[in-house]
Every structure is written in C-alpha cells, then in structure tokens.
Write a protein that binds this DNA or RNA. Structure first.
Lengths: 233, 233
DNA sequence: AATGGTGTAGTGGTTAAACCAATTGGTATC
DNA sequence: GATACCAATTGGTTTAACCACTACACCATT
C-alpha cells in the first residue's frame, strides 16, 4: 500500500446535499418545470434542517435558474428556456478575459458551415427575415446610426435559418463572449459599409441556395472582420 | 401618453443587488481570481445588510463558481477554469431533455471543419496523442471492453490539435450535452469497430495533412454514428 | 531538525426566533 | 359583476447564539 491509495476526504455541507437532492429529483422527472415546491418552513422541517440552511440551497438553485421563488406565492421548478439557463454562464464568462483570437478563429471555423447549412435549409420566411434585417441595417448605416444590433440579428437569423436550435444557442453564446469588442468595432462609420456589403453577399448566396458560395462569402466576411478586430486590439 | 408608456416595476432583492455588485467588481478587475474577500461579518457590516442575507448572495455566487468559501479560512474569488465554470450549466442541462437530433446535427456542422483545421495545425505531439488514444481504444475493443472514454478523448484531442482553446471548450460542452446517449451506443460491441474504423480514417487524413479528407472522413463518421443513435431512440 | 500535541483566535456553517414585505384568496359592499 | 378590504400564507430580512473547521503559535518529545 502506498500513499496514493489514500484519497482526500470530501466534507459535505448540508445545503449542498439539498442541492444535490433537488437536482436529482428534477433529473428523475419527479419534479417538473412548473411544479410548486412545498413552502420553505414545511420543506425545512421535512428535510430536518433550519430554514436559513434550506434558503442557502434554494439560492444556489435559483442562481442556476433551476427554480424560481416568488414572495407571497411560493417556489417553483423553473420553466426557463435554454437562453435563460445559459444566461448565468454568459454573465460569469463575461468576467473572464478569454482569448479574442481564439473566439474569432472559432467563428471562422463554425460560421461558414452554418451559412452553408442555412443555404440548404432556409425557408422563404427566413430569407424575408434576413432581407428585412439588412434593410434596417442599410437604413441605419445610411443615417450614420449604430448598427451593432442588426449585425447580431443577421448572424442570429442565419443560425435560425438552419432550423437547428442548438446552432442558434451556440451562435448566441459566441456572440455574447465577443460582447463589446464587435460593438466598438462597428462604431466606426466606414466599417458599417464593410459589414453591410459582407451581409449582402452572404444573403445573395443563401437566396441562390448556393451552399459553396454561402460558405465562402461567410468565410471572407468573418476573416475581414476578425483581422480588423485583431488590429484594433 | 398611453398605457404602454408605463413599464412594470422590477423589485430588487437585497441579495441580488449584492450579487450584481460583486459581479461588477470582478468584471472591472477590482477583484481578481485568488483574491480574498473580507470576512462575512465584516463585509455584511460594510454592505449594511445582515449576515444571512450576505450568505444568500454568496451562495448564488458560489453556485456559479465565481467564488469559493472555505470554512475556517475565508472566501475567495474563484480561480475556476472554463471547465469548472461550465460544470453547473452542464448539470442543469442534464436535467432537461434537449433535442438529440439538433445536437447531432450541430456535430455534423462543426466537427468536419474542426477536423479540417486540425489537419492544418496539428503538431507532432498532437498526432502522437491521437495515435496513442487509438491504440488504447483498439486494445480495449479487442478485449471486449468499453471504449466510451477513448471515443471522447479522441474527439477532444482533435479539438486540442487545432490549438484553439475555445474549440476545445465547445467540443467539451457538446459532448457533455450528448452525455449518456453516446455511451450507451458504444456499449454494443460491433459498434466499437465502427467507431475505431472511423477514427482511423480521420487520423490518417490528419497525419497526411489532407484537410479535405479530414473533413470528409469526419463528416462520414459523425453521420454514421448520428444515424445509428437516432435509430436507437 | 522533525514530528506530534495542545490551545487560541478567527472564519464559515447551522440553528432559532422574530419581524417585514408581497401575494393570494375569500368576503363584503355597491 | 366589479371593486375594495382583510386575513392567511409565503418568501425576504434581521438579530443572536452556537457549532465546526482552519490556521497559526507554542511547547514537548524524539
């Protein structure tokens, strides 16, 4: 027997045990989104712990959007959608400085095939949505207004055009990671025309159902923007 | 003035305000990973709130892995890595049933270009790592053992070969979303040979620095597995 | 010098009790 | 039926006390 046969003993905390228990109940389907939990006083008694200890556990679960407490009403298993579930992580990640270079490269890797899939799968209403966003973007750029919102919406709409919700959530997460870097880049007026031109080319390829062109135009667009952002840093 | 000019008033809770404040301090760099926070009793006094209320806020932050409390020592700003930051989300998502179809499609979209990038960027040690994993996988498959771990490591190692940390984290997240579905698929013995053969073809393409072949072999591999998993559901 | 034992101070973890704030449901009134 | 009021219930916060653990300092033994 060697020293490495011994493992550090992990102390459990009461409120963490409660979190575990609740998570498992939800995972097992015994508690479902929308279900109301017993009142805190009752649940604390059932669990054999003090109410503040239970509340510590509930705060953890609430921070993770797994439950929702309403004063005067009760505590419910959350019906949060994916976006709401991801929001805490996005907030946490925004406190960290990640390599912008890596994020930009990730975009270069994933957005061309996403555009390609959009060219394959877009429905007429998806195309209309893209055209509508582009029109607003053009109008605002023409008036010297800020277009970061349209830029985001355009990429988001391409993801939507794939008809795949996970792709949409992924783009959402990537965009939030880049956060303010893109926004500040778009503040410079002549760059808005670059963004607009890139978007136009992408949209034309998608409209034409030309998968290779969609991939290529998106690739060029992301590279152009990526280079400019890196120069700016 | 119309009714729509009025906006619902959002009540703030004290402990949520504290979470906001702490998050902002971390985001602004005024609190850095590894920094020690003042003792709870002192901090509660400074903030002008009760200690249980502060503790509620700290539980939220701890649940999000932003801080770490050590009994008898103190509370620190967390030095958690990306994987640890993502873990709570992965746990939450595991309580939800997401469309396996969408996740598999997402893999079909992103893993071929990732393999392509790996063929471009892999260093000798990356190739060695892939070969090593494949050898272990082959050995275990040959002995009728379970190979889910090697399967995961192989895809992870391809992401590593891109040299892009965000790509690695993304693959990590996607794999955890698929969780047990892949594992159960690999339990069936003859499927291990399919997985092994697919991995071999991908590795050969990467070794040959053949980007197109890497993309193509990965595409076929993911499609083959995806179809089988969907059939199983 | 290295190891083991003890004590103290400080810090987080839990409990108990009280009070405050918000929501919901029931009842009375018009 | 619509509105107002009230009581009960529920979550939110505060105060106080005690428990459990850690870090550190000091001393004794080998």
């Amino acid at each position: 027997m060697t020293e490495s046969d011994f493992v550090r003993v992990k102390r459990s905390r009461v409120h963490e045990d409660i979190v575990q228990q609740m998570t498992q109940l939800i995972k097992d389907g015994k508690l479902r989104p929308g279900d109301k939990l017993p009142p805190e006083r009752e649940l604390a008694e059932t669990l054999g712990v003090s109410r503040p200890t239970l509340r510590n556990a509930l705060r953890v679960l609430e921070g993770l959007r797994m439950i929702e407490s309403r004063q005067g009403d009760g505590t419910y298993v959350s019906q949060a959608n994916f976006e709401q579930l991801v929001a805490p992580l996005a907030a946490v990640l925004s406190t960290r400085a990640f390599l912008v270079k890596d994020i930009l490269e990730l975009r270069q890797i994933i957005e061309p095939p996403i555009a390609e899939r959009a060219a394959l799968k877009a429905r007429p209403e998806d195309i209309e949505e893209l055209e509508s966003i582009l029109a607003v973007q053009a109008k605002k750029a023409g008036e010297g207004l800020e277009t970061a919102e349209e830029d985001t919406r355009f990429h988001y709409a391409i993801a939507e055009a794939t008809g795949n919700q996970m792709v949409v959530h992924l783009i959402d997460l990537v965009m939030s990671l880049l956060g303010e870097v893109r926004a500040s880049w778009l503040q410079v007026p002549d760059r808005r025309e670059v963004s607009l031109a890139g978007h136009r080319a992408i949209l034309n390829a998608i409209k034409a159902r030309d998968q290779a062109a969609a991939s290529q135009t998106m690739k060029e667009h992301i590279e152009r923007i990526g280079q400019a952002i890196e120069t700016q840093l």
